[in-house]
């Protein structure tokens, strides 16, 4: 689904055919699209509509929903915890994305230019293949303040021990680090695939002209990678915004709201406090925020055009 994002306009125009053939084609296309559309309608369209309705009600699951108009949205706007959640989430996305894309670019460049080893590529993906809950549990133990392996090592080398997930200053960074560890391999692979599309002659002629690896990376690889990079950014921003599982396993939004990200807050309101209407209103606000962000990114990165054409 996401792979089509960057390509739509760049594709060569389709050869013109007669009207009849066209309508036949349309029918076939419709037939092929039908299963996807049914899925879309059942799993996206209907829940979205219902979500909008729920967001206009006061519903605790146990009694019937009561229509309250825009009350929930007014409360969202005035809720310091919601704004805090957005702030925490933005901070998380910024750090995670920055480090992840940076490291992934480096890894991808190394894979393309230095080694083609399938083993290396496969190894990079391993953390991404582990379920997030498992990753959360592993790191929760490794980073435990009193019994964790990491603190054990730090204590042995004479440095001060850390609270990691238990400390308000370190918790979000720790969660972010865990997610970077888990996700970078995947992003690197996407970028690697993008780099493979860059014609090799460009590098050949550049090196004939005397450009070094670093120069080539910045003048050839990076600019030509832009559509893929845009795709990766959009997908990763949305993905990081949806951070939930690691937090649910490790910090549960604490300590003192330090890691209460938007999705976790929504979840808490919905399934701990059973305030479905309010949670739905927050979720829809987040949809608007994410939609705006995605639009902005696509525009800024001119994601749908490629410099290769």
């Amino acid at each position: 689904m996401s792979m089509t994002l960057g390509r739509r306009k760049g594709r060569p125009a389709r050869p013109r055919t007669g009207n009849r053939a066209r309508s036949k084609e349309n029918r076939a296309a419709g037939l092929f699209l039908l299963p996807a559309f049914v899925g879309f309608a059942v799993f996206y369209l209907y829940p979205t509509g219902r979500g909008i309705w729920i967001s206009l009600t006061d519903w605790n699951l146990l009694s019937d929903p009561k229509y309250v108009g825009a009350d929930n949205y007014v409360e969202v706007a005035e809720d310091p915890l919601f704004w805090n959640a957005l702030k925490v989430t933005a901070y998380f996305v910024f750090i995670t994305l920055g480090v992840q894309v940076g490291v992934a670019l480096l890894l991808a460049a190394i894979m393309v230019r230095l080694t083609g080893s399938v083993v290396v590529r496969a190894l990079l993906l391993v953390p991404w293949l582990v379920p997030n809950v498992t990753i959360g549990l592993i790191w929760l133990w490794m980073l435990d303040a009193n019994l964790g392996f990491v603190n054990h090592l730090m204590g042995k080398t004479g440095s001060d021990t850390h609270g990691f997930f238990a400390s308000p200053d370190e918790a979000l960074l720790s969660v972010s680090a865990v997610n970077i560890w888990a996700g970078t391999g995947y992003v690197a692979l996407l970028l690697y695939a993008g780099m493979l599309q860059i014609p090799g002659e460009l590098y050949e002629s550049a090196s004939l002209d005397g450009a070094g690896e670093i120069r080539m990376f910045f003048t050839i690889t990076l600019p030509l990678l832009r559509p893929i990079l845009a795709l990766v950014m959009v997908v990763s921003v949305i993905g990081s915004f949806q951070i939930f599982d690691t937090i649910a396993v490790t910090t549960k939004g604490g300590p003192v709201d330090a890691t209460r990200v938007a999705y976790y807050y929504i979840y808490q309101e919905a399934f701990t406090h059973f305030r479905m209407g309010y949670a739905a209103a927050m979720a829809l606000c987040l949809v608007v925020v994410l939609g705006g962000l995605t639009y902005l990114q696509m525009r800024l990165l001119r994601a749908s055009t490629s410099d290769l054409a």
Partner: peptide, 14 residues
């Protein structure tokens, strides 16, 4: 124990 260095095992574990 300091709050920000508490263990996940809780007071009983300690």
């Amino acid at each position: 124990p300091a709050y920000d260095k508490q263990s996940t095992v809780g007071a009983d574990g300690l």
